[in-house]
Design a protein around this nucleic acid. Structure first.
Length: 713
DNA sequence: ACAGAATTTCTCTAGACAGCATGTC
DNA sequence: CTAGAGAAATTCTGT
């Protein structure tokens, strides 16, 4: 790989002076080596590039320059696509800068927006891969104006579940103009060729990185660094020993662990040593107070974090509420929190550098194969170690891999530190991904002949021989299950197929829903929830042995028969129980069971509950739409209400009250139990509402209730 | 024979995208 | 196949 060290002066860029002004306002006088290289390869002339470089090496600015120069030259729209909503938000805020030049910036993702007309007035649109894929299926007219695509974090192609979406977006984007950005990958020339783009590959990092492997050695631990130097640290636990070492040198530490439980445990252990570390106690108690203020999050997780944070330590995983995670990240960024122990949540995603990164576990439990521990990928390690070194604070970043078994030292050192990352490969080679891919293409492109459709598939990264295998099977399956039909030599989506594509659910999900609904005239909440949770799009939750037994005993006592027959096969059966657990969680949720109670009863975090609600909201809505499409009116009526209840976690009687923004399940219940049962009651009892919810909120709510009422008359 | 200690066996395990409604973007 | 922590079950030990 080439290593260039040229820094181009911003003044020398062939760009309008106001663009250069904006860069200088940000404090950018010179472009760093990767940025310089990209410019030299024709970035500003709209040349198609694939840029691979480490995290934090300034790829965003490259994208900005590419977008701005393209828009100046050709007009139209530019789309910036990321794999994460948090990233979408982050880039949106960065790109806002360009509104000074008259470019309008918008973002859109599943939790935020649809394809509505307002996007047509914007020049730069930041979105996720899934959202763009979905937009394409809906074919809004403004999308034709989008001619420049920035594909961020393209290495997500390797993700077994989400990679196929990235790939299919890339296939369509490469028919226009694109700029692809990726972490360092080994086969970048192959990928560049696939994208019909010029590769720009660098290893340059803003803060140099020193990597090492830490292993048990007499009376302590030894670290072997990449430059062959050795360092010795003492203590019982390697992770804690090195964390304290880095803290004593005034560094911040990011520790990665492979399970939530060990992340929490490690954080607690570290906290018990923090008396020796100077802390800004005032600032930390401010954070603790902030946690008391937030609404989201179970009380247990809040309490345990408050205790740790007061000692400058936190843990971080997806079981925590979003608000809690945001507070922790910000506290770390402000350098008040000194140590975060995290699961892989923090490996990808928003920028959160630390001087020291400790990779506590190289093995991870594999859900698919029981009892199997697999080594994490090199890519994953690079994502984690890439967080090491904070520009402006650290001269050097350090990434330490903990090896517990001495005989693995060489192997681990070689694999993670000396070798390059895995090549990017297509993950379209399975039925679920491939069928979904074809359905999406047909939905986005309209009717195509079999040959035209196949040509899209041949443009994927999947080897032709595999395309041929899956293609015929896909066409047959999609026809037999009436997603598509053939007319005058063209493949056409049926109404049902189009609906499924628009709802963005997997065709297998749709098929399961249809069969479940068509076999019964009407059913009960639990059965609907179970059916939906059982589909491939349904959420996964861990079910312990004890819970399994309980669930099995419960099946016969349910209000009504489930819509799925009990499977015989073991794997299927555990999915069946998984779905039942989800159904019970959601049932409690819509019966207004207190959140803390739900979290405790099912042993989940508030972040998990939020996830389940989000997914089941989407699926109940989709099932409602499908039942209408299939003219199953009784199901449709029930699913419509179920969907509304899942969205807010309420009984049916509160549906009217939760229309008001700022009123959720708790406030609605409070009002209802005090005789305020609808919008009219609010308007007529404003004083009572104010006394229940406080004057300020009460007033706001009364106004909105009045506004909503007016809309009806 | 039995309480309590030592040892073996069992159990558990990461993350996060998508629809739609609308007056924000 | 390539794990490690904690709880539960089982076996061992000393009196």
């Amino acid at each position: 790989m080439t290593v260039e060290l040229e820094w181009m002066n911003v003044d020398n860029l062939p760009l309008p002076s106001d663009v250069i002004e904006i860069l200088k306002n940000r404090g950018i006088i010179k472009l760093n080596p990767p940025q310089t290289e990209a410019v030299k390869k024709g970035l500003l002339e709209g040349k198609r590039l694939l840029l691979t470089s480490p995290t934090g090496s300034g790829k965003t600015l490259i994208a900005e320059l590419g977008i701005i120069s393209f828009l100046f030259k050709h007009g139209g729209k530019a789309l910036y696509v990321t794999p994460l909503r948090a990233l979408t938000n982050e880039k949106y805020l960065t790109f806002k800068d360009w509104e000074k030049l008259g470019f309008k910036v918008a973002m859109t993702s599943g939790d935020y927006d649809t394809d509505d007309a307002w996007l047509k007035n914007y020049d730069i649109i930041v979105t996720t891969y899934e959202k763009l894929d979905s937009l394409w299926r809906h074919r809004p007219s403004w999308l034709n104006e989008a001619q420049y695509f920035v594909l961020d974090e393209l290495h997500y192609i390797n993700d077994p579940e989400r990679g196929p979406v990235v790939e299919s977006v890339a296939i369509r984007a490469k028919r226009r103009n694109l700029l692809a950005l990726s972490a360092t990958i080994s086969n970048y020339t192959v990928i560049a060729k696939w994208l019909n783009a010029e590769p720009v590959a660098t290893n340059w990092r803003p803060v140099p990185l020193i990597e090492g492997v830490m292993y048990p050695d007499k009376k302590g631990y030894t670290i072997l660094f990449k430059d062959n130097t050795l360092k010795k640290v003492y203590g019982d636990d390697p992770v804690i020993a090195y964390t304290l070492d880095s803290l004593s040198r005034n560094g911040q530490v990011l520790v990665f662990r492979n399970s939530r439980k060990t992340a929490e445990l490690t954080a607690r252990k570290i906290a018990s040593y923090m008396n020796f570390i100077p802390l800004d106690e005032k600032a930390l108690s401010d954070i603790v107070n902030e946690i008391d203020q937030i609404e989201e999050g179970g009380s247990e997780e809040k309490e345990s974090l408050k205790e740790l944070i007061s000692k400058g330590v936190a843990y971080h995983h997806a079981g925590l509420s979003k608000q809690l995670r945001d507070i922790i990240e910000e506290g770390f960024r402000q350098r008040k929190i000194k140590v975060i122990v995290a699961t892989p949540t923090l490996a990808a995603g928003v920028n959160l550098p630390a001087r020291t990164v400790i990779v506590g576990d190289i093995y991870r439990f594999n859900r698919r194969i029981a009892g199997f521990q697999e080594e994490i990928s090199v890519m994953e390690y690079k994502q984690m170690s890439g967080r090491a070194g904070r520009p402006g604070f650290d001269e050097m970043g350090e990434a330490i891999i903990v090896v517990r078994d001495k005989k693995n030292i060489d192997k681990i050192f070689k694999k993670y530190i000396l070798s390059s990352t895995e090549p990017l490969e297509s993950k379209l080679g399975n039925e679920r991904a491939f069928y979904t891919f074809l359905l999406g293409i047909l939905s986005a492109e309209g009717n195509l002949s079999e040959k035209e459709l196949a040509n899209f598939a041949y443009e994927s990264l999947l080897p032709k021989s595999l395309v041929d295998i899956y293609f015929d099977r896909a066409i047959q399956w999609l026809s037999e299950h009436s997603f598509i039909r053939e007319e005058e030599g063209k493949l056409i989506l049926t109404d049902f197929g189009k609906r499924v594509a628009d709802l963005y659910i997997n065709p297998f999900t749709a098929d399961i829903i249809r069969k479940g609904l068509e076999n019964h005239r009407s059913s009960c909440d639990i059965a609907y929830l179970h059916l939906l949770a059982f589909t491939p799009d349904g959420p996964l939750v861990s079910v312990s042995k004890n819970e399994e037994e309980e669930l099995m005993g419960l099946i016969d006592d349910l209000d009504c028969d489930l819509l799925i027959e009990e499977p015989y096969e073991e794997d299927e059966y555990s999915l069946y129980l998984n779905a039942l657990k989800i159904a019970l969680i959601m049932k409690d949720w819509i019966e207004e069971v207190d959140e803390d109670t739900i979290l405790g009863k099912y042993n989940i975090g508030s972040g998990d509950l939020r996830n389940f609600v989000e997914t089941m909201d989407w699926l109940t809505y989709s099932a409602y739409q499908l039942s209408r499409e299939l003219k199953l009116e009784e199901h449709a009526d029930k699913l419509r209400i179920l969907n509304a209840r899942v969205k807010d976690g309420i009984r049916e009687e509160l549906l009217e009250l939760v229309q008001i923004s700022g009123i959720g399940r708790k406030r609605a219940r409070l009002l209802y139990n005090n005789g305020i049962r609808g919008l009219g009651d609010i308007v007529m009892n404003v004083d009572k509402v104010k006394s229940l919810l406080g004057p300020k909120l009460g007033e706001k709510i009364a106004q909105e209730a009045a506004r909503l009422l007016n809309r009806f008359y």
